[in-house]
Design a protein around this nucleic acid. Structure first.
Lengths: 184, 184
DNA sequence: AGCCACATGTAAAAGGTTACATGATTTC
DNA sequence: GAAATCATGTAACCTTTTACATGTGGCT
């Protein structure tokens, strides 16, 4: 139901095609929800069939035609319903932690390399979030006021990444100690 | 591949049945990987068919017979391979954040109630992790030394939950301000 | 000539959830 | 007598990922 909720939410803000939607996912909800273009198209078809979306074909020249979807009254009702339904707390599900847990199968130097790769990726993510955050605070104050709730997930993303990076840095230090200690 | 990796890792530490495995998941890797008993049984069958696991039926009296699985040489080889393969960095995927993002569809009081429910769940999680952590530090020092890598995911779980709770508490305060502000 | 952006799709496989099904023993 | 624990499974379904497929126009 969450993909459906996400699609309805974004199309309610502004109608668009599957392709549009994909890019808007990447730009706005990417840090807590992502979906491939195949998922979008399938969901759009289903929602249209169920009468929750209207579809209008827009002929463009120079570019492929696009199908612009927008909410019907039934769609808006469903959206309100989904928004009120309590969400389950999400558990972490991270393959890298599994790898750490089974760390004794890996030579320490390789383990360290894996960790460094993950660290680099997480630092990159943090930088992206910080940039998005800075952009938010450049908006006019009345927009900041209006969008403050939607902005909260980004703040959590930043805090979570910071916690991850700190944890990883401590771990990295210890791994390095173990490595040099083992050579003595 | 991650379920497979998890199953092989746990069975390598100690052979067991699907039922055993389920409980060991709950006790040891639950904070970063979980799976239902159906997933276990399916994976065990597949791994057995592929020759990565041996299966020995153990007749028990008073209790249902159990099928005890253990790694074959091929299984150990696969495990080593999976352990070395680089893991992708995991993204957050949280339906509650989606709900926050679409928060304008919900009356503020209801939003606050949802947040409070989530907060309670996360506090509960943190308490569970802290208890597991305390149990770890009661083990003999040589065991702590041996298991320190496997213990790291729990430390991350604790830090992540703390970050979540702090974020949520700040958000809750602001929601309460907005609510009382709106009544003036 | 090759790549990127635009735009939409099909098909298959893998991963995960929910419901149903059975049956003995132990604990309250 | 009811519920929990032990123990294994089938079936259906939903969600997600990966690969394949097509075609235009603009940029370098």
């Amino acid at each position: 139901m969450s993909l459906r909720f996400a699609v309805l939410t974004l199309l309610d803000i502004e109608p668009g095609s599957g392709y549009d939607l994909k890019r808007r996912f990447e730009r706005s909800v990417n840090h807590f929800w992502s979906a491939s273009h195949q998922q979008m198209y399938r969901e759009l078809h289903k929602l249209h069939q169920e009468g929750l979306l209207d579809c209008e074909e827009q002929i463009q020249d120079g570019r492929p035609d696009k199908k612009v979807y927008s909410l019907t009254e039934a769609g808006r009702a469903t959206l309100r319903q989904l928004a009120a339904r309590p969400a389950a707390a999400q558990k972490i599900r991270d393959p890298f932690l599994l790898q750490l847990f089974a760390g004794h199968h890996l030579p320490p130097a390789l383990m360290r390399a894996q960790l460094e790769r993950q660290l680099a990726e997480h630092r990159q993510e943090l930088a992206t979030y910080e940039a998005q955050n800075a952009r938010f605070y450049k908006r006019p104050p009345e927009q900041q006021q209006m969008l403050w709730l939607s902005h909260q997930p980004l703040l959590l993303g930043i805090e979570t990444e910071k916690a991850w990076i700190q944890w990883a840095e401590r771990l990295l230090q210890r791994l390095q100690q173990e490595e040099s200690g083992a050579q003595n």
